[in-house]
């Protein structure tokens, strides 16, 4: 089932087009990566979903209804440009934002106390935000974003400003929230984190959706049938074995304790035959497909090579 559908959304500003006929579907319970180079239109799309700005044409559906003002209670948004009131005390401030998201003061206080214990930041409650470090403030901001238990969480570059330990904590929390039924939209440049936590992605470049779908599918689809063979035996024997079926990737780096070679088998049907032949000539220790990293796909897609 889909939680959010974006249908043919176009948004123009005076000088440029931020989004050009963008459509995407976000399945319920997924962690959905929204990727793209700077200025591609990711933030505009996120703002449209948050109803901060309205599209010139097209529509956004949340569940089976067009998104409406009261839906802000169902969304938790952590913008890239984030901050807290500097002079306000941490606890008081968190309660304020929770109230604006529809929680009662009492309920907000109870939930916040739990989270502060969980994140081991109880002693910050009465501190002013300006006394906190940037990373500490980010933690508070994260709690504020998810406190009202929204169905849809939107994180815009959530890991910027976090140290690796806290980034990891955040990652775990995001996955935990997904397991509890939340749907997460996750905008980032950090492709390693995409591979780790996203199950679906959309790649936006120059205002258009150029690549969309489940992460595994995309990575497999964009694999070029390159395989790495780790073996014991003569290299020439192996080269002879695959001649005609596959081409050897000359000079390709491999990491292996064995002899190792990368080969490309253009036709899928030849894979089985190739393995059979190789097996006859050398001792195969491992044979696996090299699936391109999200980073490679991203760079290629943006460069228009896909």
């Amino acid at each position: 089932m889909d939680l959010l559908r974006v249908e043919h959304v176009t948004k123009k500003y005076a000088q440029h087009t931020a989004l050009d006929d963008v459509s995407l579907t976000i399945p319920k319970g997924s962690v959905y990566g929204l990727l793209g180079p700077n200025g591609a239109g990711k933030t505009t799309l996120i703002r449209i979903i948050n109803r901060i700005t309205a599209p010139d044409s097209g529509q956004v559906w949340l569940g089976d209804k067009p998104i409406a003002p009261q839906d802000v209670y169902r969304i938790g948004y952590l913008p890239e440009e984030r901050g807290l009131y500097k002079k306000m005390k941490v606890g008081e401030q968190a309660i304020y934002f929770a109230q604006l998201k529809g929680l009662s003061r009492k309920e907000a206080t109870v939930r916040l106390k739990e989270w502060f214990v969980r994140f081991q930041i109880r002693e910050w409650w009465d501190k002013k935000v300006e006394e906190l470090s940037k990373g500490m403030a980010q933690k508070v901001q994260f709690i504020v974003t998810i406190l009202h238990q929204p169905e849809l969480l939107i994180f815009d570059e959530p890991f910027s400003g976090f140290d690796p330990i806290n980034a990891n904590l955040l990652k775990e929390e995001i996955l935990r929230l997904r397991d509890k039924g939340a749907t997460v939209i996750f905008s980032t440049h950090n492709m390693a984190s995409v591979e780790e936590i996203c199950d679906h992605i959309t790649l936006i470049n120059k205002s258009r959706n150029i690549l969309s779908g489940p992460l595994d599918e995309i990575r497999h689809k964009h694999g070029n049938n390159i395989f790495q063979v780790d073996y014991r035996g003569e290299e020439s024997a192996l080269r002879e074995a695959v001649a005609g079926l596959a081409s050897v990737m000359e000079g390709a780096e491999t990491e292996s304790v064995y002899n190792s070679l990368k080969i490309q088998i253009p036709c899928n049907d030849d894979v089985k035959t190739a393995i059979g032949r190789i097996n006859e000539r050398v001792e195969i220790r491992s044979f696996r497909e090299i699936i391109p990293s999200m980073n490679d796909i991203f760079i290629k897609a943006v460069a228009g090579e896909l």
């Binding site: 901060i52 802000v72 807290l84 604006l100």
Partner: peptide, 17 residues
């Protein structure tokens, strides 16, 4: 101006008009 200078702006406008 406070919301803009402390960058609370976007969090606020995603919650209130």
């Amino acid at each position: 101006i406070e919301e803009k200078s402390s960058k609370v702006l976007e969090v606020m406008v995603s919650s209130v008009r």
